[in-house]
Design a protein around this nucleic acid. Sequence first.
DNA 1: AGAACCGCACTTTTT
DNA 2: GTGCGGTTCT
Length: 959
Amino acid sequence: MTDLEPNDQQQELIDSTDGLHLVDAGAGTGKTFTVTRRHANIVSQPDVEPDDVLLVTFTNNAAAEMKERIVGNCHYGMRELADAPIQTFHSLCHDVLEEHGHAAPTHLGIDDRITGSTRIIEDELVEEALFGEFIDRFSDDHPEYDDFFRALSEPTGLLDLVNQLAAKGVFPDAEGWYRDGERHLDGDFAAFKRQFDELNEPRNGGSKQSVLRSKLGRYGRSKCYLPDAPEKSDIRGSGKQVPDELARRVFEEDREELKQFVHDVYHEYLEFALRRNYLNFGMLQLFAYVLLCENHELRDEVAFEYVMIDEFQDSSEIQFKLALLLAGTNNICVVGDWKQSIYSFQYADVDNIVEFEDRLDRFVGQLNTDHERVSFPTTPVTTIELVENYRSTQEILGFSEHGLRVPAANRDDVDIAAVDDRIVSLESNADHENTTIEAIQSDEEQEAVLAKIQEIVGNDDYRVEDEDGNPRPPKYGDIAVMTRTRDFGRELLGTAEEYGLPMAYEGGIELFRTDQAKLLLAWLRILEDDIDRGWAVVLERAGYTLDEVDAILERRVYPENMVAFREELRELETLGGVAQRVFARYGYDGPTADVVLHTLQSVHNATTQTRGDLIRFIERAIESGSTHEVHASAGTNSVTVQTIHATKGLEYPIVILANMNSGRFPPGGGGGGVITYDDPVGLRQRKVYSEEAHGLPHIYDNWQADVLGKCLPHNYDEERRLLYVAITRAESHVVFTAGEDPNTFIEELPVDVESVTSELAEIDREETEQTTLQVEMPVQEGPKGHTPHTLMRDDVFEDVEGGRGTEFGTQVHDFAEAYALGENVEPRNDDEENVMQFIDDLDGELLVEEDAYLPLTVDSERVTISGIVDLVHVTSDHVEIIDYKTDRGRHGEGEYRKQLSVYYHVAREVYPDHKITASIFYTESGVRQDVEQLSIDEIQRLVTEAETPTQTTKQNADR
DNA sequence: AGAACCGCACTTTTT
DNA sequence: GTGCGGTTCT
């Protein structure tokens, strides 16, 4: 609808630039279109610059898309808008801290600075490792907290807690809690009591016990409370309700020590992170918030004249407050849809939008307690509803509302009147009415899904609209299968492959962190060069203890059966063969092994990678991030498989909502945390002392927390919204599918469930357009011009045990350069001794050319480059390219392979007749290792892939 | 009809 | 550890 004019509500939003606005923008109502037009309208005012208008999105992709659309719509070009504040909260906070935030930690009593070199830890596993290191040290330093640690199974639970507190705006300072943070930790008895009472209400007019009493039926089961814990009959009472005073008994508990513990962990972790020169995403917001709270001049300086927040239902409490601090005026506009709030696990709080006015008022009050930080009135708030839907037929829109009304479980009762009251019904703008909504159940669900797809493709009953609005029969590419779990999607993909049906999974898969991938990697390493890292994994897996593994690695005599297996693998010619044999050995025959195999093969086939390349590829994949993105090639005609969470913002003519099976949608259960934090209950600990920790029977010594856990209602709202989101992706047709045991949702929806047995035809692979999986190579920056320094990834956070780290490496490198330049320097450690020895051993006179990047113009015998490659040594017939590394074990030679290769090819041009080698010099051991060169094509390919990220198939249509 | 008991299964993803 | 659904008991 780029060419179309805005409708009345959209126009109203575009025109009302001033004042507080809450916009309910349902699915497919042209939200992005309207927001970008509104932005253009604001900046078209004579005294408003793009810099004055903050537009917050929740993903970088969304920000980029917004920017692009805005450029197309106003008189500013991309250049003027390149630095305009159209960004995520996180990147905005990053900018603020970078520019003004050096002293931010001091406001929390932390004597450290945020500097330009402070890194943002993006990888969860990296942070967990760092946190683990921190918590080890912390527990050593604080014997007084031994009791807490005895009850903790996973220290990462504490990291979760810290992040959750940060997202709620609860921070520790030197003495206690920043501002009114402690109130949140204490909880709110009145609010708790309301929830307690609601859950303690007898059912069926008094004839049936309350939900709470029923839940407490398992009180004490498979638990061993301390002797002073009350009896079950005492807890549950004798009537239909539990005793009223139970609320107070479980709520009132001395938590001073627990709060102190959490405070110390939290505060010292912040100190630790700053000392190690990193921040996580939560800390970005934390410090930016503190800074904006404390520094009144800065707040005025940074403040924006206009603030717009997109996808407001995905915002967290601290983000709401940040927005208030960043707003210099009341020109605040939040746009969102509570019905599409499905990211609470990312600290999103739907109440930000549902209770917007209450929260606005409350948060401003909190911010203004001691100083007027927010100086505009919180009323009036103008509400604008976008109700015209440009995506789906009316029938689908009507049906989608049922998703918000049906019970998600037998015991779930929905307050339909209350839901209806909140729903703003959408009106379809579609000019065609051909819609089908159906549900099928089959004992072989996967086959049923595929058979349904075969039935749909080319079938005029399922006709869809082409770009000009004319009806046409559907293609594979018109269909999306949405699932709640990745697993089902992956399995379906495997089945589709068997039948040759073109299907591609889109989204993140944690492919290379699976045991399957790690074992395969280990064996590939063993095959490649027998290195310890391969054997260590394999031996550990076979049950050897760490000491035994060490001994075996030391003696290099490996178990006979493993050596035999290695020889067996050596015989195999293809990578697929190796992988299959490895998986067979360990009994991996599930979908994960299949996908690992398939993915590696597609990388392998599509390129000319050697086994060594693949090893490095897997290493990088493991290192660089937990999930591995797998995309369908753009433009191929294949069915898309996605999780519902990943489909937000997308749309498809035909949606198959699969895996509507009992027990899985909605999810059941969920592990019990040790320390929980949840308003209004506050901070609680469930102390479980395990047998392993004590050699005693399992002791559960906090019966209060046990009961508290049951006093809060289980909320199914998000499950229902998930269903709603999935249905509203569809333009024309929806199919639900379930296996043997359909769940409550599918039974409660107003649609007949038809039992089917599917007849599935095998598709001739030659005839269908094959889809290939493209795996994004985790390659960093590409080259700019032809200087190699841009090839080096500079975001590798190096921190190695025993004091070896970035700083140490820099020192060794500085020493090496100074020594090569002939300066009078003394080695300070073994590494520098080794470097000195190495340079001394090189023959010939030493000549130096400073700042010698490319091209290498040399007429001397020998050149030192003070650039990124550490040393280029030239003799009459030989060029040696050398890179020092201070931290063997952290990085293989693959890390800087591209960069060394670029030098290699340049040297080739400069010295066509010389022998050219490139190698890594490990300073710790004094070992030099040659590096195999990449061809120019290979470098080019890696670089190109890094520069052109694959597009997602269908972005939010142009509205 | 309601209460008690038993066995089963056990996410999503962005910054 | 916990919620669900089904079965059995009262």
